[in-house]
Design a protein around this nucleic acid. Structure first.
Lengths: 107, 107
DNA sequence: CGTGTAAGGAATTCTGACACG
DNA sequence: CGTGTAAGGAATTCTGACACG
């Protein structure tokens, strides 16, 4: 589904660059991690690494915060969206299984 | 043509990460820049920033070097490919202009 | 030519804490 | 709650140079 090299998801960007890209302070970025809104990886020596996808997520968070939405609420929204996505995915899986057993044959 | 956000071309990766990604030493990466094989941007304070595209380019360079190709030769090949690409592009431009004046109308 | 390394300095990042509100 | 800041240390990056071959 995603590109195989998947430039968007590779966690390769350091916090300083993320700060420039998002306009957020490093303090804010680390705090949003503490509040479980963002999940960077760590380099061997402990430096945070973010993906472009994380950068976009942070920009969304920044917009919500400007509207006065609290981090807790943002987290709730994220969890809700995630559950919805999982339901959609399971449904898709199920459809595939049913087709494999009872569906019309291809060719 | 490329994605608008253009994750592949944004120069956001520090040299340490590029070193991990490519298996090349920082010394080698800086040297290939000196030889004009790679063109990182610089952060305000002078740190090199690379794109995913640069990383791929470096992997190609590493492969060529393993085959014993010298940096000078690699550079010549790159310049040749670039000129070829430019000819293709100008041809494309020209075709567009001709169509705009004399070509069949759409609709 | 291509790469390793030691050198010294400057910039980056990390954590835990105090501050304000 | 969300963010700024000073603190001290560790890791990163930079440049110019010497070394080997």
């Amino acid at each position: 589904m995603a590109d195989n090299p998947s430039y968007k998801e590779r966690k390769v960007i350091t916090i300083g660059v993320v700060s420039e890209l998002t306009g957020l302070s490093e303090r804010q970025i680390r705090y949003y991690e503490e509040r479980k809104l963002i999940f960077p990886e760590r380099s061997p020596k402990g430096n945070r690494k973010y993906s472009f996808s994380d950068v976009e997520q942070l920009i969304d968070i920044a917009n919500k915060r400007e509207e006065g939405v609290q981090t807790y609420e943002i987290r709730q929204e994220m969890l809700k969206a995630k559950r919805k996505e999982e339901r959609r995915y399971r449904k898709e899986l199920l459809r595939g299984e049913i087709n494999a057993r009872f569906g019309v044959q291809k060719e």
